[in-house]
Design a protein around this nucleic acid. Sequence first.
RNA 1: GCGGAUGUGGUGAAAUUGGUAUACACGCCAGACUUAGGAUCUGGUGCUUUACGGCGUGGAGGUUCGAGUCCUCUCAUCCGCACCA
Length: 814
Amino acid sequence: MSYNPSEIEAKWQKKWDNEKAFEPDEGLDRKKKYILSMFPFPSGRLHMGHVRNYAIGDAFARYYRKQDFNVLHPIGWDAFGMPAENAAIKNGRDPKEWTYSNIDYMRKELNRLGLSFSKTREFATCDELYTKWEQEFIIKMFEEGLLYRESATINWCNDCHTVLANEQVEDGCCWRCDNPVELKEMPGYYLDIIKYADDLLDDLKQLEGKWPQQVLTMQENWIGKSKGLEFELKLSDSSKAKLGGEFDSFTVFTTRPDTIYGVTYTALAPEHPICKYLLKNNLLDEDVSSRLVEISNMTEIERAKEDKEGYDLGLSVIHPLTGEEIPVWSANFVLASYGGGAVMSVPAHDERDFDFATKYKLPIKRVIVGKDDELPYTKEGTLENSDELNGISNIDAKKDVIALFEAKKLGRGTTNYKLRNWGISRQRYWGAPIPFVHCDDCGLVAEKIENLPIALPEDVEITGEGNPLDKHPTWKYCSCPKCGKDAKRETDTLDTFVESSWYQFRYATNPNKWNSVGIDKEEANYWLGVDQYIGGIEHAILHLLYARFFTKVLRDLGYHDIDEPFNNLLTQGMVLMDGAKMSKSKGNTIDPDALVDKYGADTARLFTLFAAPPTKELEWNDSAVEGAFRFIKKLYDRKSKVASRTLLDIDQSKLTKESKLARVKVYEALQKSTDVYERTFAFNTLIASCMEALNALDKQDNKDVWTEGMYIMLNLLEPIVPHVATELSEMLFDRENLRVQIDVKDEVFVQDSIAYMVMIGGKKRTEIEVAPSASQEEILTLAKEAGAKWLDGMSIVKEIVVPNKLVNLAVKPN
RNA sequence: GCGGAUGUGGUGAAAUUGGUAUACACGCCAGACUUAGGAUCUGGUGCUUUACGGCGUGGAGGUUCGAGUCCUCUCAUCCGCACCA
């Protein structure tokens, strides 16, 4: 009977379904493993990246089940988002119908891969039961002051017709559609993630060694914490007069308080209130004001590409320590969104300030002496030209100046972050409605918890123009939850990253409670954090930062006691074809369905795990897929070599050299398995070990060695090629070999003689066979005899014996 | 510019604490079986040399009895951040 994957795979998939083989225990007393691959967006079809992601996760899940862990391995659908609306615009599909039919199709595709997911815990984030609890969390956050609404300058994608969070802007373009982002002033809802910045930063330490260093670094840089001095610069009397008495001073932030005496000018962002006042009242030259308006309309990315540019505003401030008058400029490199939108400039000790001062011939005053005389000098040194601070190191001066400003009540030590608060409003239909109501009398009012979920209307017209919820004839009209008067519902929906920020907790909650709670605390505390999370590195900031933030917020709201959602993170590499990412537009895709049709799911899984280690990019190779298929066929064919249904004791002393070697290879693969699942994740090497074992078994014909070899190998391969491994295990061993833990037998590794390499003068020269009991002296004697040819005319300087490996004789000529 | 990573055969890649570099697979070559083979099986396959041998993990040094592995410098590629005061 030859290998027939479609028959075997269909058989076992059905059987696993009937057996409900992959549901976790309801009880919470066993040791647990929570294995999670990032859930898919239901785009319509699976791609090879999904196959890789789920093949890796499934290997972990099946391995730990065999190690007798209670395993949670769920799947669901990240189901809200733009593509559903695009389908509506292009093909007139209803977004809900489009989404759920995609889910049905993709579920079948996933089933065909034989993945060991829990079937009872599956959900889509667009399910109203999911929205209900998400809206409750949002209201709780509002009540705690973590969520607020304000009008601000936001990133606008004119293709998606919606706002984007800072994290969702990549290179000045929309993360989803790559359209250049524009700036717009509009109201929106924000989550105060900055309040958690220190918590998010500090807890990265817990993840050291468990998350890729690159991801930790990226998050650290994104949060961008810096400590420094914040203080007010008082305007001169003439400047105050020029500004109509509207302004008295402005605030600046510096991380270099030690250079305070070197300030020679200050610069404001073009959006700074003082600039705006000057523009509004026509107090600047025509060309200056029109240029400042132009710069204001540029995004930060666009400004970064321009040369440094600035204009003297004709104002001055008083230096807080020297009392000198300092000119005020406006410059294109000063960001409105950071540090109050104003800087003190110290050209002698800052590269950017130096460039600017050089360009506009502004004074440069050196206040630190150090190793060299070159300006700008940004290294350590000793203060000069700094009155009472002269002679102290600039490191100490940082603290001293902050203390001085605080004592004189001129300023304060403070911390700034690059991280911006998370804008969560989206002016789109296919998302979770933001559960608030605008009342003329009561203002912004949260919906009553008992009214949740606030569901989407189904009779909407989606044109791509404007917000469909806002344009709906009746949906937004409601009564105020507080006073009962006529009011209007919020028509913005939540950023879809909100859904993916807490789904890991939803899976952990038993589905029979999904009606009554969002997150079951006891179950969340048992299952979380996720023991192994697997997904693409593209979420290094976005999803992974938001999910960490949500975890901490929900903890503080009392929903659970977990600090970090994902204890271990594996970032898988991309699947490439001819060196490029597979994509529909390039036409270089492999359809997983077609692959399964041709070779079966086991081959698809084996290839993706074998061709490269999981963190590296995976280059597609048709003939290597054939190779994977050949290995499975060979394995299947060797079932005829097995002679008994149970393991028999093997008398090691009666085996041939080849049989002994085969046992060594089999047990080496067994040892490798633990190492791979628990430390290196190098599935490719485990598979290679199994191939070596099979090759070695093939070179001998002892039936008992074959039986033992297959018994162990099928156990090792079951997480990777579950269908064929289970089929053979049933045929040969009644699946007994999948239920037991197999221990390594040390006697297998005991050798009759050990080969020692003989090195002379650091070069490999010959080999000797040595009895395991041989003493160091005996080994050396043998080595010298065997190496006599190379020792002639030499004297031995040093003798090294590495047990079981080699002898090295260091020599010099006589 | 800053930060992180990676450089090993024709290709994807292996290599505990420093201890026989290139396991495993693909490809290629030769052979067997075949009417045929893009099927299957067997053997071979780093470079160089007639041979003994020599040389080989991006490059140059260093430490060591011994370096792909550790140290210093350097080159290349990829990724992330990018005027953050």
